[in-house]
Nucleic acid binder design. Structure first.
Length: 581
DNA sequence: GCCGTTTTCGGCCCGACTGTTTTCAGTCG
């Protein structure tokens, strides 16, 4: 069973945790954490690179030693250092680091004094009042540990971005009613439009920080106040979401916004550049000695160190710093660039609106065309169309298009890709369509080779236009299927097929990394709503967010094309255009 | 353990808050 990057990264993470608890050199620990992150996020399969004798030292943070360890992990599944660390210290102890407020030093102290190794033992020790007897711990710390354990048990690790928005927007509205509040914005992973966020980081500007903090903790949804100072505070909302607020003076807004938007790796890279220029960046500004030379706006902060302003979605230390320096940052796609949608459902399958309702809703949102792609029959758990029913829908759409103004419906289908790679409807009916969107709805757990062959075969079908939600993942619910998307992309490009970025907030499939790979491979991405009712079109913006994280520009996205430019790019209609001309 | 516009050694981002202290360590972001 071949390893994945995530598993290799996990070995490094475990080593970092154990080293840290043992009190190792913090920079060595950081080296393992940096390496874990680079490997985990690396676009290509690291085990495959090793197999093909590619140099893994070109991955950021990998030097001679860690390259050797990667090869060792690829060969054996683990590495000798981790085995040795586990022999010296119970491996389960690292789970204690997940409890908020417990870091390596305290975990070590509790282990040495009380032999606490697990969450359960920690709870028992706290309930029996033993924690406060350990040097450096007291009543309050013991009580906090019990509280945080409670939170730990209930907390789902991360929230979908759309879920976080439901907390963020009313909270911002509350903050803005505070006396003396000039600005209040969400920073952090929310602003970078990560598909999930662990907490909300809010930045406000005001002269009197304390007053803003007091106003903040009085917000009705606040269930628990974790910290409250003069310039920052942390609370937990009723939804379980943690919110961190920072208040700075308006002169520092730009610097603080850069700082709290992150990512951490992006900030560290910026500070290193500043160091080289004998400047210092912190959340209050850019400083030469005591003089603040920038900080009111983000642009001023980037400019002070010779960089173009970087869109938040790119701030992941994935090459954006170099691009900002060379003035080669991409001009990222925006929602308004989408002029159509190529994947939507109606009541004919599992949608909740009629053809006409969907057409009007699409037009209302500025779309010039909408592909109607109901499910084919046989899809698990969904009502679908057989050939006869689809034939009637085709006639219905033709009739409707004669009366519609300002929007055109394209005749399409979301057809099942069967386990052997055939499509779930006869060729004769597929040939009558403008667009064929193929999707895997069963057999998500096929082995990698079979899953890949299955999809490659489907792409070969002459009517196939777009591969929908290519990995099938549902965030927090279903893992992506195991498939070699590089091969899929290369074949798609050769055949004139396209890959979808399904914009539903719990799908966002393709991921940002795969979007970037698609761009590199020259495959167009279709950002589709997969709408099941008229409100579903509003999800397109999440797809655009994800596409921006994947460095996509207007030219990289299929449905930025007007209808005339689009038709020849859809194989189904292209082949018919050829026949009729 | 990595890395180089201080390049093979000596650095490695920086500040706020809390609790347990009695001037600071630990944790977090």
């Amino acid at each position: 069973m071949p390893l994945h990057n995530a598993e290799m990264a996990s070995v490094f993470e475990q080593i970092a945790d154990l080293l840290e608890i043992q009190g190792a050199n913090p920079f060595r620990v950081r080296a393992y954490r940096n390496a874990a992150r680079s490997v985990g996020e690396f676009g290509k399969s690291v085990p495959a690179m090793i197999e093909q004798n590619e140099d893994v030292k070109r991955i950021a943070g990998i030097g001679d030693d860690l390259a050797a360890k990667l090869r060792e992990i690829a060969a054996t599944g683990t590495c000798e250092l981790l085995t040795r660390l586990r022999a010296e210290m119970p491996a389960a102890i690292t789970e204690l680091l997940q409890v908020q407020g417990l870091g390596p030093k305290r975990v070590r102290a509790l282990y040495d004094a009380l032999h606490v190794q697990t969450i359960e033992q920690l709870r028992e020790a706290a309930e029996q009042g033993l924690i406060r007897t350990v040097p450096g711990f007291g009543e309050k710390t013991q009580a906090h540990i019990l509280e945080r354990l409670e939170a730990h048990a209930h907390k789902s690790r991360r929230f979908a971005l759309a879920f976080a928005e439901r907390d963020a927007l009313p909270l911002l509205a509350h903050l803005r009613t505070g006396k003396g509040v000039e600005q209040a914005v969400v920073a952090g992973s929310f602003r970078r439009r990560c598909e999930t966020v662990g907490d909300l980081d809010i930045l406000a500007t005001a002269r009197d920080g304390r007053a803003v903090i007091e106003h903040f903790v009085r917000y009705g949804e606040v269930r628990q106040v974790l910290a409250r100072g003069d310039t920052r505070s942390s609370v937990v909302l009723a939804s379980g979401m943690q919110v961190d607020l920072r208040v700075v003076e308006p002169e520092s807004f730009g610097a603080a916004l850069v700082y709290f938007t992150g990512s951490k790796a992006h900030n560290i890279a910026m500070r290193r550049i500043a160091q080289g220029l004998r400047l210092k960046i912190n959340e209050y500004g850019v400083f030469r000695g005591e003089d603040r030379i920038a900080g009111r706006t983000e642009e001023s902060v980037y400019a002070a160190i010779g960089l173009d302003w970087v869109p938040p979605e790119l701030r992941e230390r994935h090459g954006e710093i170099e691009a900002a320096h060379a003035h080669t940052l991409p001009c990222l796609i925006e929602r308004a660039d989408l002029v159509g949608d190529l994947h939507a459902h109606t009541r004919a399958s599992d949608g909740r609106a009629s053809l006409l309702e969907m057409a009007l809703a699409a037009r209302e949102r500025g779309l010039q065309y909408l592909a109607v792609t109901d499910h084919s029959s046989g899809a698990d758990g969904t009502r679908g169309l057989d050939a006869a029913h689809l034939g009637r829908q085709i006639d219905e759409i033709d009739a409707l298009n004669r009366t519609l103004h300002g929007v055109v419906l394209l005749k399409g289908i979301e057809v099942d890709i069967l386990e052997d790679g055939r499509l779930g409807l006869p060729d004769a009916i597929l040939e009558r369509l403008d667009i064929v969107v193929g999707a895997v709805h069963t057999g998500f757990d096929l082995p990698r080779a079979r899953q890949t062959e299955r999809v490659l075969r489907a792409l070969e079908h002459p009517s196939m236009s777009i591969l929908a939600h290519p990995t099938g993942r549902l965030i927090g619910e279903r893992e992506p299927c195991d498939i070699d998307l590089v091969r899929v992309m290369r074949r798609a490009r050769a055949l004139g097929c396209h890959l979808e970025l399904d914009a539903q907030p719990n799908r966002l499939d393709l991921t940002d990394t795969y979007c970037r790979m698609a761009k590199a491979e020259g495959v167009l991405v279709a950002i589709d709503s997969d709408a099941h009712d008229s409100a579903g079109f509003d999800d397109l913006r999440y797809g655009v967010d994800q596409a921006r994280r994947g460095w996509l520009e207007t030219k990289d996205v299929l449905n930025t094309r007007g209808l005339d430019a689009l038709r020849p790019l859809l194989r189904a209609s292209a082949s018919r255009l050829e026949r009729t001309s």
